[in-house]
Each structure stands twice: as C-alpha cells, then as structure tokens.
Computed example of a mutant assay.
Amino acid sequence: MDQTKVKDLIEEALSLNESLYLVDLVISENNKIQVTVDGDNGVPLSECIRISRSVDGNFDREVEDFSLEVSTPDISHPLKLKRQYVKNINRILKVKTDTDKLEGTLVEADEDKIVLKWKVREPKPIGKGKVTVEKTATIEYKDIKEAKVKIVF
C-alpha cells in the first residue's frame, strides 16, 4: 500500500472541510489503514464516512486488499498537534515533562508554548494555616513528553 497516495487522498478529502486535520496515519504490514482525524469543533460521523469513502473509492480492491478505519482521537490518547492544544483551551490537562508532572487548566496555546494555571493550598508566609495560591506554568512544546485531557465528571 502506497502511504504517500493514501495521505494525499486523505489531505484532499480534508481540504473540503478546513476545520478538520489529520492527526495520525498508520498502515500496517497487512494493509490495515488507520486514519485519525480531528476537528476544531469536533468531527461528525458523516465526515468520517465521507473521508473513508473518498479514500476507498480511489483503490481497486481486486488489485490491493486492505481494510480502512477512519476515526477521531480517543480521549485516552495524548495530544499530538498544536492545533489540538488550541481546541482544548479551558480544559484541564495532565502534562508530563522530563522533570515535572503538572495538572492545570490550559489557558493559552500559541505556536511555541502552552500556559497552565491551577490553584494550590500553601502554608501562610506568616502565622498558622494555609492560603490558596494560583500558580502558572509556561511549557514549550519541545519540553512536553505527554499531554492528555483530564476527564471531569
């Protein structure tokens, strides 16, 4: 299976809806094609079907036997693209770097970095008791080892 041709067909199908973008493309040795797409405002099932038909219609199953799966990212999978971070502003993220594990609300995502905010209880500087303090962390994308959206019920 020609990965370049498959990717070109997917990009062509995605170009019809500019809010959609390719997150991942995996083609296994036995020609199982797994396409993961996301969108700035989510991805309706009809779009997954449309993308699948667009790719499937351009291959002859008599020549190449393959299976095709078009899906959206699972909530348990880490964020991969900067565009996914922008989509998840105001959601709680769990972020791992080489030195830290942070959890906070994503308040900003630009071309180079993200900004997380969270509240913590710390001892008062003078006297007994604790006080709530707001913390902020700015993390460059290159330092992020893994970032996942936290599911809150």
Rank of each mutant, 00 (worst) to 15 (best):
A13I: 00
K128S: 11
K128I: 04
I49Y: 04
V149K: 13
K80Q: 09
V23S: 07
N90F: 14
L25C: 05
L20C: 01
D60V: 01
K135E: 13
K32R: 15
A13H: 12
L14G: 01
D74H: 13
K101Y: 13
K148L: 11
I89L: 06
I75Q: 09
E134I: 04
H77F: 13
I51F: 00
V86A: 11
P78F: 11
L20R: 03
K150D: 06
D65Q: 15
V86W: 01
N58S: 13
F153K: 11
P125G: 05
D74N: 15
E62A: 13
S54P: 04
R91H: 15
K32Q: 15
P125V: 10
D110S: 10
I33V: 07
E64K: 10
D56V: 01
E18A: 09
I139N: 05
D24N: 14
L116W: 01
K80W: 11
K87F: 07
P125M: 10
E64F: 05
Y141A: 02
I139V: 09
N31M: 06
E18Y: 04
E122T: 11
D112N: 13
E69W: 13
N17L: 12
E12D: 12
E12T: 02
K96I: 03
K130P: 00
L25W: 07
I49P: 00
K148D: 01
S15Y: 11
V107A: 02
V95N: 01
N41S: 13
S15V: 04
K5L: 06
S54V: 05
S52H: 07
V115Q: 11
V70A: 00
V115I: 15
T97H: 13
L22Y: 08
L20P: 00
K87P: 01
K128L: 13
R61L: 07
K117M: 08
D74T: 10
P125A: 12
E29S: 15
S67K: 05
L68R: 02
S46E: 15
L9R: 00
R83C: 02
T138M: 08
K150I: 06
F59S: 04
F59W: 14
E69V: 09
N41T: 09
D24R: 09
D65I: 07
E122F: 03
E108F: 07
Y21N: 02
L22Q: 07
K96F: 14
K142W: 07
D60N: 14
Q34A: 09
